Simulated assay, not measured.
Amino acid sequence: MGDPFVLAGRTALITGAGGGIGRALAQALARRGCHLALADIDAAGLSETARLLPAGLRISQHRLDVGDREAIASLPAAIRAVHPGLDLLVNNAGVALGGTFDQVAEADFEWLIGINFWGVVRMTRAFLPLLRESPDARIVNLSSLYGLIAPPGQTAYAASKFAVRGFSHALAHELAGSSVGVTVVHPGGVATRIAYSARLPADIAPEEGARGRALANSYLKLAPERAAEIILRAVERRRARVLVGTDARIVALLERLMPAAYWPVLTRLMRRP
């Protein structure tokens, strides 16, 4: 495993830093003395995150749509203008899309893949040269519980998160022996706003959509602050993979034991009071 990955005095770039896990990661990194470049499409959320951080650190804010190829391509120059280098890239930004495959429009499917997968790929491509300049750097890619299992109604989201998982593992093998390591993260149900901000098919009735959002949100229980600590402790230990939450650990074990038959078992478990 080697020496710990020390975060004090380093510089980290976090996408999706305007709330949820991204904000919690920014706060946890700041407590460790890490300088921060915060990126999010939500400028107001970015400002609030920055307001919550302690003084004495180098903090920059960058409004960014990770689904925008040109915006990502121009970001390294903006980071270099403020920070002397980059040691940690956290690809956290993501969106959700409800509905079965038949219900989901192709444009919405492409929208999600463009953010959840291509955003990770393009951010990694854009910042790998800068990370290579650091003597000890790391890329942290957030997959999901749905990068381990694939429930009905999540064809787009699961496809994107399985893609992030595969990309991260292959990239880690390619970078083995270099100064850049890779950690892939599989959060379970973290209490963020993702269920309520998910895009839904246009033909779903409002009451059906509200019920679906409420049901999805009921599974999101782990505090983002706790998730952030689990993730950063894994980064400090140079872990290649981290399961965040009891639900993620249970599901990962069940999928390993029953890779083709886990879903009926999980369905029965979820129906228990």
Rank of each mutant, 00 (worst) to 15 (best):
G177V: 01
G153Q: 12
I113P: 05
R165C: 10
P201D: 08
E106Q: 12
Q27L: 11
L131S: 15
P151W: 06
P84N: 00
H169S: 11
L200E: 14
R271P: 01
N92E: 05
L145K: 08
Y196G: 09
V82C: 01
E174Q: 02
F127V: 12
S218P: 03
G85D: 01
L112E: 09
L75I: 11
Q103R: 06
R256Y: 13
E255W: 15
G94S: 10
L253C: 12
L254S: 07
E48I: 02
H186N: 00
A77I: 00
A198F: 05
S197I: 08
L13V: 02
A240I: 14
P151T: 05
N217P: 04
T183L: 04
R213V: 13
A170S: 12
A227Y: 04
A248Q: 10
V164Y: 15
I230N: 08
T124C: 06
L232F: 13
A176W: 11
G98L: 15
A172L: 01
L175N: 03
G94C: 12
P4L: 02
D87G: 06
S218M: 02
R80G: 09
S47I: 02
A78Q: 14
Y262W: 11
V190L: 01
D65C: 12
R10F: 06
G16R: 13
R249L: 08
A158N: 11
S197M: 08
L222P: 05
R125Y: 11
A81P: 00
V121C: 04
G19I: 13
V121S: 03
A126T: 03
I14Q: 09
I230D: 10
H173G: 11
A55T: 10
L7K: 11
P4I: 01
A195Q: 05
I231W: 04
R256E: 14
L89E: 07
R51L: 07
V185C: 00
H83G: 00
L200H: 15
F5M: 11
L97C: 09
S74R: 15
R226N: 09
G56A: 03
A96W: 10
V82G: 01
F109S: 07
A37R: 01
P201M: 07
S160Y: 12
S74M: 15
K161G: 06
G33C: 11
E133H: 14
D102L: 09
V235W: 15
P201R: 06
D108V: 04
A198R: 06
R132S: 09
R69V: 15
V244K: 12
A77H: 12
K221W: 04
R132W: 12
E110F: 12
G153K: 12
L29Q: 04
R125P: 06
G45K: 01
Y219H: 10
P54Q: 06
L175Y: 06
S60H: 07
T155W: 07
V265K: 00
D203S: 14
Q103S: 09
A216L: 07
R58W: 08
H169N: 13
A176H: 13
S160L: 13
P129I: 13
L269K: 08
T183A: 03
I21T: 06
L243D: 15
G67Q: 11
P187C: 00
G188Y: 02
S178V: 04
A30E: 02
G22M: 00
S197C: 03
W111F: 09
P264E: 00
R51M: 05
I139V: 13
A248M: 06
A73I: 13
A12E: 03
A78F: 03
G22R: 00
A240R: 15
I250D: 07
L175M: 04
V104Y: 03
A228Y: 05
